[in-house]
């Protein structure tokens, strides 16, 4: 079936199977930041934004995004021009193997878009469904708090 939606600010017109997972579709068209960790909604590695809200792309079929605005990590920053959240993750040392990182950055982005002065507990609640098997989470929380401070100081683009 034909599908049209906005991906990272660019209009998309493409073919998808009615039962194709949104996660698979996004990877198929090159959005490799979207990871498949569990396929059951439990790990958060596949987190993306739809109309600005974080969702699990593994628990969606592609046609559900018809007419919607989809954002993946690729839409937030690039290697040459990283998003302040990505810079904060580097600065805080919040990345080890990196498998969870795209989902973590996206979920943190949603939090900070609605609350740029979160408490450490609010950060922990936001990322609670995103599993990291490497870092122990402490530095991820530090990174999100650092990015929040930068945002309040007007240092986001």
């Amino acid at each position: 079936m034909k599908l049209s939606f906005e991906l990272n600010g660019v209009a998309q017109y493409l073919e998808a199977d009615p039962g194709e997972r949104l996660l698979s579709l996004l990877r198929r068209i090159g959005m490799k930041s979207v990871k498949e960790g569990c396929d059951t909604g439990d790990c958060g590695a596949c987190t993306i934004l739809i109309d600005g809200r974080a969702v699990r792309s593994c628990l969606m079929v592609a046609p559900q995004v018809q007419g919607k605005r989809v954002t993946t990590l690729e839409g937030l920053g690039t290697v040459d021009d990283p998003h302040p959240l990505q810079r904060a993750f580097l600065e805080a040392g919040a990345v080890q193997c990196g498998f969870c990182t795209p989902g973590m950055v996206v979920i943190a982005y949603e939090l900070l878009s609605r609350n740029d002065d979160p408490t450490p507990d609010e950060v922990r609640e936001a990322i609670a469904g995103n599993l990291c098997r490497c870092t122990g989470y402490v530095k991820i929380v530090d990174a999100v708090l650092l990015a929040a401070r930068w945002k309040r100081e007007g240092r986001w683009r």
Partner: peptide, 9 residues
Amino acid sequence: VAVPPLRNM
């Protein structure tokens, strides 16, 4: 119930 991204869905 669950965590924010699941509550969004």
